[in-house]
Write a protein that binds this DNA or RNA. Structure first.
Length: 426
RNA sequence: GGAGAGGUGGCAGAGUGGUUGAAUGCGCCGGUCUCGAAAACCGGUAACGGGUUUUCCCCGUUCGAGGGUUCGAAUCCCUCCCUCUCCGCCA
């Protein structure tokens, strides 16, 4: 959510900044809604003050043993007026809130202009696209050869966009997740967390998945409804919802390995082959809760932590600064890490690292006590995939494939694979 | 699933219809004392919204959530959520 004070005082400037990301803010309707809110609130509070004054004097009269009947008569229809005014105020407030919850975050000034993916800017790169002296296979073919990925049986169980992993591939998948967790906890100072995979609507709203993107999530139709997490960002970030964090505890750095569930509504026909885009995939997620003045620097740091994984696995990648039009709803600034996939002869997203500023914090009411002011103030939140495990598996299979279809195990993973150096063709 | 207890400020914990935003303790901040510190003592210490506008003031809201009764609700009634204890079941 954007700062309501800013919306009140600098509406035009905000509209201009939101336009950069393709969001149209209807200035006039917002301004008139806000004007009605002010009028109704003033009226309601005046009536409340009046009621409080009179009630107090009735109390005093009664304790003094006076007759309160005439005072009661005077109160008359004050209650009805108050009820009418406050109900109307509530309605306008809800309307305002709905509009505010639908507004995306303001892009940072440093974010490049642009409408879509094609306008993203490369910041740096690591390694060169893998050169193979044979026709590269994609991970689907490799998975068949080494007998470790089964899409047909997955479809039998669950429909499209699922995969069953078996044997050495299942182990490689586990190895990747473990390796990532170990690196982030031992080298980068994150606290490992185990979190619920089902969350309430509140949590989804806190990080920005709701109310606008409900169609993207799987819902359990219970009372109350619960959502399958689309990313560990949701439970991890919401850990600080409705809390006032001690200044000394910041930054909070959390890492968790969880499955992620996405309906991929609107992605029909996109990445239908292979396990690039699934309804269920694993991810190791990094989240930081920081002091506002630190968040810019922390984004660079966090992105570096995700990069470390790719570097350790010796996978070629590039870092892209997302343009205003391509960023996610809640993000102020985002870097995507794109790994080279020989099977596609393309760089594909394997991590997305974002600074959300106070946008999520305001939705969550996540604050810290600023020792300078002594007041609770909104924290800043960040997150990044470190990394998407499924896509990392794809990247390893494709980049480490051999002419005969076998796959060399990256050095960094061998200790997690019982010392195995190679996934063999069966 | 059954029975019972409870959810109050950063924390602990009083408070069952009337100037209660809420005793007390801890914590925190300031002061006295001290060469300095501790202890002791004194004082201060909620959040949110709005108005006004700035180092001040005024108003409103908030005692798990939402409704209701009342001139007036932390306090009474209803619904829901959560926590704890015991029993059952269970990985």
């Amino acid at each position: 959510m954007l700062d309501p004070h800013l919306l009140r005082n600098e509406l035009e400037a905000i509209a201009a900044r939101l336009a950069r990301r393709g969001y149209h803010l209807d200035i006039e309707s917002y301004a008139s809604l806000e004007a009605r809110r002010k009028e109704l609130q003033t009226r309601t509070e005046e009536l409340q003050a009046e009621r409080n004054r009179r009630s107090k004097s009735i109390g005093q009269a009664k304790s003094a043993g006076e007759d309160i009947e005439p005072l009661l008569a005077e109160v008359g229809k004050l209650g009805d007026d108050l009820k009418a005014a406050s109900e109307e105020l509530e309605q306008v407030r809800h309307e305002l809130e709905r509009v505010q919850l639908d507004m995306p975050n303001l892009p940072d000034d440093a974010v490049p202009d642009g409408d879509d993916e094609s306008d993203n800017e490369q910041v740096r790169s690591f390694g060169e696209p893998t050169q193979l002296d044979f026709e590269p296979r994609d991970h689907v073919e490799i998975g068949e050869l080494i007998d470790g990925i089964d899409f047909e049986r997955a479809a039998k169980l669950s429909g499209s966009r699922f995969a069953v992993l078996g044997g050495q591939v299942a182990r490689l998948h586990r190895a990747l997740a473990q390796f990532m967790l170990d690196l982030h906890t031992s080298e980068h100072g994150y606290r490992e967390m185990y979190v619920p995979y089902l969350v309430l609507g509140n949590a989804m709203q806190g990080t920005g998945q709701l109310p606008k993107f409900g169609d993207d999530a799987f819902v359990i139709d219970d009372d109350p409804a619960r959502y399958l997490i689309p990313t560990a960002e949701v439970p991890l970030t919401n850990l600080v919802a409705d809390e006032i964090v001690d200044a000394g505890d910041l930054p909070l750095k959390f890492v968790a390995h969880t499955p992620c569930f996405r309906r991929e509504a609107g992605a029909y026909g996109k990445d239908t082959r292979g396990m690039i885009r699934q309804h269920q995939f694993d991810k190791v997620e990094l989240v930081q809760i920081v002091r506002p003045e630190d968040s810019e620097e922390r984004l660079e740091e966090l992105t570096g932590h995700a990069e470390k994984i790719l570097q350790a696995l010796e996978l070629p990648y590039r870092v892209m600064a997302l343009c205003a039009g391509d960023m996610g709803f809640s993000a102020r600034k985002t870097y995507d890490l794109e790994v080279w996939l020989p099977g596609q002869q393309a760089y594909r997203e394997i991590s997305s690292c974002s600074n959300f500023g106070d946008f999520q914090a305001r939705r969550m009411q996540a604050r810290w006590r600023n020792p300078d002011s002594g007041k609770p103030e909104l924290v800043h939140s960040l997150n990044g995939s470190g990394l998407a495990v499924g896509r990392a598996l794809v990247a390893v299979l494709e980049n480490y494939q051999q002419r005969d279809g076998s796959v060399v195990v990256p050095e960094a993973l061998r200790s997690y694979m019982g010392g195995a150096e190679r996934l063999v063709v069966r």
